[in-house]
Design a protein around this nucleic acid. Structure first.
Lengths: 211, 211
DNA sequence: TCGAGACGGAACGGTTCCGTCTCGTCTATG
DNA sequence: CATAGACGAGACGGAACCGTTCCGTCTCGA
């Protein structure tokens, strides 16, 4: 019974950090665990969550099915755990000194994420699946939506502090405007973007915030 | 000439219009066909395209599987056909006399569509599936995206004619701004909307277009 | 009246996947 | 060096669907 805490074992570390069965925190130190995680995301992009088969994940990872079941109890648990793990980055606040600069930095970050081919396929799929699987929706919300939401809110707060926006700026709308158009273009309609696309979008958004 | 051409048959109608096997045009006169279509969309909303089982559709419709296979050759063909059928409405141009009025009317139409519970579940699912199934993506594009795109383009043209926008208005960005924020809010993040939400959004969008 | 054909229903063999379990191998600790 | 434990591989029974085929019934138009 390796993975589970093994309450009686001697003082030092119980071997090397194994995976774990219950949610609580991503691990991934294991090379087998890493291979499984990579295979999981590739399979997720190719097949979609609904049709994703743990058998295919195991085969792609060059692992046995037992290696997966030793780490997670189910496909849903595995998904929640791995998705939460990758979304934790949260990264820097990106204070560029001006509202337009901050907006542009935010857009560039979103665009960069959505231009990853794997992410562009996986994210819409998980969002759609979240409509059917509340646990998955919650994991997405706390890991992704709330993180971005926090960044965008701080972006607006800084602009208010600088006097670039009135204190009463409509934050709800601003958040939708920051995320919506890019998501729509890159993840829904798959339209190519001109090199200065983000620049022009940033101009429009700043104008909208000030309205 | 509803069903197959039936080149030799006498002048009058050959019975009643049956479904048909190949794409080309929605029919749906049949009561059985209607029941199947309704069951299909309910099942699609509940299960998602990937897991949708024609057996379940037949059961929900109170029909036999043979009744489905008599009309469509596969799940994909059925989906393309039925989705194209519902999206054809296209509706009126909605010229309200002002840019802001037109924008608001456009937003209201989008919001109304996305507030249908079935649509709100089905659309993100089909979009995600479209990333994996080119035929489905194409059906969605020609039936939905191009229709909306045309409406939005005419909306901008009218504003240019009125002198409300410069002729060089950035149509690409405007289209993303019209669709993206609402789609983001209603279909991705599922956030409730205040009663005056569309009004305030329309103000922001008009300001953005003019920037 | 009678035949054509669509109907609901049920069963068919063939896949695919699940979650469990058993092999024999490899490796690292003690 | 011995051995415990994780490993890859894959067989297993059970379940769900697929797409097809067959019933026996019912409703038409000829």
């Amino acid at each position: 019974m390796p993975a589970t805490p093994a309450p009686q074992s001697p003082p030092p570390a119980p071997g090397r950090p194994p995976g774990r069965r219950l949610p609580g925190g991503p691990v991934l130190q294991d090379s087998v665990t890493e291979a499984i995680a990579a295979a999981f995301f590739e399979e997720l992009a190719a097949t979609g969550y609904a049709r994703l088969s743990l058998e295919a994940v195991a085969k792609r990872a060059g692992a046995g099915k037992a290696a997966i079941y030793r780490r997670w109890a189910s496909k849903l648990e595995m998904t929640v755990d791995l998705v939460s793990a990758v979304a934790v980055d949260a990264s820097g606040p990106a204070d560029t000194g001006s509202l337009r600069g901050d907006v542009l930095a935010f857009l560039a970050e979103v665009a960069h994420a959505l231009n990853q081919p794997l992410a562009a396929r996986i994210i819409p799929d998980l969002i759609a699946e979240g409509g059917r699987t509340p646990e998955l929706a919650e994991a997405l919300f706390t890991a992704v939506r709330d993180t971005r939401r926090g960044k965008a809110t701080r972006l607006l707060d800084r602009a208010v502090d600088r006097g670039e926006l009135p204190a009463a700026v409509d934050r709800e709308l601003a958040l939708d405007l920051l995320a919506g158009p890019l998501y729509w273009r890159l993840a829904v309609v798959h339209t190519p973007t001109a090199p200065d696309h983000l620049d022009r979008l940033a101009d429009k958004l700043v104008a909208a915030f000030r309205a």
